[in-house]
Design a protein around this nucleic acid. Structure first.
Lengths: 184, 184
DNA sequence: AGTGATATATATCATTTTGATATAGAAACA
DNA sequence: TGTTTCTATATCAAAATGATATATATCACT
């Protein structure tokens, strides 16, 4: 599954421009899927070429033209086919955990700073997820509600683990550094 | 931070071939960083060119030559510099959650199958993480112990959430489908 | 003795994605 | 008045992905 499929997916709800698709990803999908202009615009161009979406240029008086994309019947079929044949995958790429793994190469203050920044980022994410839940008057699809609940549970667990264990990590590393100094 | 930095990092522990680096990633880093041959071999070539690792060809009698890579002093400095200047990031790309978000486009049986497959994958991952913990006689670095604990906590939370909520999701979707049929 | 599966080991490559940047008028704000 | 933010599209070098090719060796089965 690639960004093309995601674009088809969000277009099932309503017609959107590339810019709006990007915003939609940021608002609703940010904790489990990231896509930038560099993948969205080429995806839309390719989908148009293949007749899976149609594109209408909307002239605007005071702004550049909008290109509003709509899902075609062929696009809807392609989307369902793609969803049916996609094996469930879930990938994490954590530069934060890489930094923690090599923490013994860094000063203690830096490790503390890194962990605190990560916790702060997760706090922001949790606040935005709770915002989604608060706004929901039944307007969220059941699948999106499931994904939001997932985000809250798992991000909460991540935040709690790091907050609870960072001090132990830093202490252990400081002890080992002292032991190594004594050996020299 | 890219695969190059990770390669420098694992080479702080011992000299390794590209093949061994890949295996090391799979064994120890698999739940938070993935890298294939297509990124590791070019990374090692570039690091060699820049003098950050050195490469020794080891002739083997019954197998193709090994290229064993070692970290140079310049490579160690470059690694520390990179770690010090990398902001903590943590990115998830979940095709599984995308499938859940568009669950209303799929038959109930398919949703159940997808969720069960994801839970099974996470069970495997948890078993391999617990294997790491069981083997640990103090041989794990404190940072790696932190990362392993993180993996256990967060993967466990993810597995529990999906196992606990998939039936509710499927029921809701089936109800909505029935309501829609009645409206037609 | 043969078959298939798995392990060691390096490498390539088309396609995709990333992350940053360019362009440009409008609105909001200080 | 100047600065930032918003709307909107687009491009691009660098990086990563995921699959595949190439060889040899070993190991378990039949």
């Amino acid at each position: 599954m690639d960004v093309k499929t995601l674009c088809l997916g969000v277009l099932t709800e309503r017609d959107l421009t590339g810019y709006e698709i990007k915003r939609h990803f940021e608002e609703a999908f940010c904790h489990f899927f990231v896509a930038g202009y560099g993948s969205i615009y080429p995806a839309l161009a390719d989908l148009t070429r293949r007749g899976l979406v149609s594109c209408t240029s909307v002239l605007q008086e005071k702004r550049p033209d909008k290109k509003v994309y709509s899902l075609t019947p062929a696009g809807r079929e392609a989307l369902i086919g793609e969803l049916m044949s996609t094996p469930p995958r879930h990938k994490v790429r954590s530069e934060f955990l890489v930094l923690m793994v090599f923490a013994h190469l860094l000063p203690a203050a830096k490790i503390a700073q890194i962990a605190d920044e990560m916790v702060a980022q997760w706090d922001e994410l949790l606040a935005s997820i709770d915002g989604c839940v608060a706004e929901d008057d039944g307007c969220l699809s059941p699948g999106m509600r499931f994904a939001v609940g997932y985000g809250r549970a798992v991000t909460g667990a991540a935040r709690a683990y790091v907050a609870d264990n960072k001090d132990r990590l830093i202490e252990t590393i400081e002890k080992e550094a002292v032991a190594k100094d004594a050996a020299d």
